[in-house]
Design a protein around this nucleic acid. Sequence first.
DNA 1: CACTTGACCTGTCCGC
DNA 2: TGCGGACAGGTCAAGT
Length: 320
Amino acid sequence: MPELPEVETIRMGLGQLLPGRTIKSVDVDANSAKSFPNASALVRKYLVGAKIIDIERRAKVLIIGLDNDYCLIIHLKMTGQLVFVGASAKTGANKSTDSAETDRWGGGHPTDSLIGALPDRSTRVTVTFTDGSHLYFNDQRKFGWIRLIPKAELPDIDFFRRVGPEPLIGTDFTWPYFRAAIGRRRNTSIKAAILDQSVVAGVGNIYADESLFATRIHPATKAGQVSPAKLKRLWQAIPEVLALAIANGGSTYKNYIDAQGGRGQYLMKYGKVFRREGQACPECGGVIEKIRVAGRGTHFCPACQKLPPAKSVSKPKPKQ
DNA sequence: CACTTGACCTGTCCGC
DNA sequence: TGCGGACAGGTCAAGT
């Protein structure tokens, strides 16, 4: 489940590994055609012989810039991985022997690999460079995708037209902006509102739950019922949580690994509620619960994060 | 337009 | 042990 911090971690890793390399070939798995639509025609025309210039990120999308004014755009969705393997490296050599429970929380050394030899059953696309190194796009559930487009057309892609401001880059994610964007969504839950990529780019299920815990807001609170003080605190907490996650290599729960197969440490070190249902709240000692909000599994502490009181006693309570 | 739900996929886990 | 179903969650299309 790569969210902004995981994608940014991959971006930084690939930024150290890919620029300067020239593509020799690109192979798409026969049963994974949707992972890279129209690849066969595009590869011959624009990819073979192209050199990688840089790696950028917008929201949860990676943009691999080529020296021919085209770029590869990649969305990992839930289970996508991008793993670089050098020409002489043996994958799987340092595959972790930690228990599954440790894997789950991103334990072990950050450079321990979570993967075996590549390509494997989940490999959808393999990029081979002229120096013999490889970039593997693995995606168990095939929701992720790779596309090739001219750089000039990037702003025209539907995803980029819709997506909201970056919370960590630039000056668009201001308090007045956030207050207005949430205000437009006052009748939905605050969690649904911050998961909405047009409100803020890059927040997914993990960081939504952690940001709402950090601000003591019940995830099911109607967006319009969050007090201005708490909303402002949430506006501050989102970039703080995301930045701390980036500093810790993102979060590994199940599938996420970085560009060299390493895990993220954030959830184990700093995670408070996500996937900790039944455990004690680190702040108050109460029991963390899991409910369903905005169609997602949602984790929170019922003692720390209370719904605001109902407006009227004569109105029936909202159904749980 | 705001908002919700289902579809896209596959691997895993849980209950019978 | 096998088997069916629920679940995981990012985004878009289609629904209310």
